[in-house]
């Protein structure tokens, strides 16, 4: 009984964190970026205000937009909300957990990316078409890197269930293969979050917003939130594998989890203002390098290091 209550609370809390923490972190990100730019910057709550405002704005649908355009953001959002229940964040067990749940998590994460790109394509706008083309090209390689690093974690921990992976990791960790693999996951999270220099699908001065150009109102809010959530879930996966010892702690689990993710987002925020936007070729080249690193972690895991 006690355990069931814990499960329910942790799941609800997980979903709550996934929805509200990333916009807050984005606010902090914008503030830090502004300080580096020598600007004052918007208030930290600004991203949350923005999303709230978008929720009550009119939705404008271009003529000839397909049904993908209409439903993709909501679908991606619900996929990701479901995934947030499966990813253990502050409690070792998750409400929906079974053998191989890691595969499903990965599947849901990448489907949401593809859905968002298809939603952009469905708008029928040439700029959105160009943005979606870039997004899909990059996603293929990014997902590959993520898959390799997750497989190496599975091999090294000898388990397929998230819960078991964390349990095993807390015993055998720290080992090089897991550290490298989680590093790759964090890099994937950075790329998937449309951050510079990988901000190609939106690239406002080039293709005026790219895949989001036709979105407005609630759909835009759902779209933006989905991007935030996807990035957050990847970060959550990575930091918990990197530091698995606090998850089972009922009291310290939550604050330590927030601290861990905060540190990651802080690094992201300091990194972004240092870059200019890549061209697609350069972006693919650097993602390929990340793929190579993930293969190294795979080899290391195979060797049992």
């Amino acid at each position: 009984m006690n355990q069931l209550a814990l499960l329910i609370i942790s799941s609800i809390l997980g979903g709550f964190l996934t929805i509200f923490l990333p916009p807050l972190y984005d606010g902090i990100h914008r503030k830090i970026k502004a300080r580096i730019h020598c600007r004052i910057g918007p208030p930290i709550m600004q991203t949350i205000y923005d999303l709230g405002k978008l929720m009550v704005k009119d939705d404008i649908v271009p003529e000839g937009a397909s049904s993908l355009f209409l439903y993709a953001p909501y679908l991606a959002f619900s996929y990701l909300l479901f995934t947030s229940i499966m990813v253990p964040m502050i409690y070792l067990r998750s409400a929906i957990g079974f053998t191989c749940d890691l595969i499903l998590i990965l599947y849901l994460l990448s489907s949401s990316t593809v859905l968002l790109a298809l939603g952009g394509l469905g708008s029928g706008n040439v700029f959105a078409y160009e943005g979606a083309r870039r997004e899909l090209t990059m996603t293929i390689l990014t997902e590959l890197a993520a898959i390799f690093s997750l497989i190496s974690i599975m091999i090294r921990c000898g388990a397929l269930r998230m819960t078991e992976i964390y349990e095993k990791a807390s015993i055998i960790h720290p080992v090089p293969s897991i550290i490298i693999a989680s590093g790759v996951l964090l890099a994937c999270a950075y790329i998937e979050g449309f951050r510079l220099p990988f901000e190609l699908p939106e690239a406002e001065p080039e293709i005026s917003g790219g895949i989001i150009i036709e979105y407005s109102g609630r759909r835009l809010a759902a779209f933006k939130l989905s991007v935030f959530m996807k990035q957050f879930l990847l970060v959550a996966l990575a930091v918990n594998i990197l530091e698995p010892w606090s998850i089972s702690n009922l009291i310290l689990g939550l604050p330590i989890f927030i601290l861990k993710t905060f540190i990651v987002y802080l690094v992201f925020a300091i990194l972004e203002p240092l870059f200019a936007r890549f061209r697609i070729q350069e972006a693919l080249k650097s993602i390929l390098t990340i793929c190579g690193i993930s293969i190294i972690s795979l080899i290391l895991a195979g060797l049992g290091v």
């Binding site: 730019h37 020598c38 200019a276």
Partner: peptide
């Protein structure tokens, strides 16, 4: 070119 720091 996406380098807003230089811009600012």
């Amino acid at each position: 070119l996406g380098f807003d720091t230089g811009f600012m």
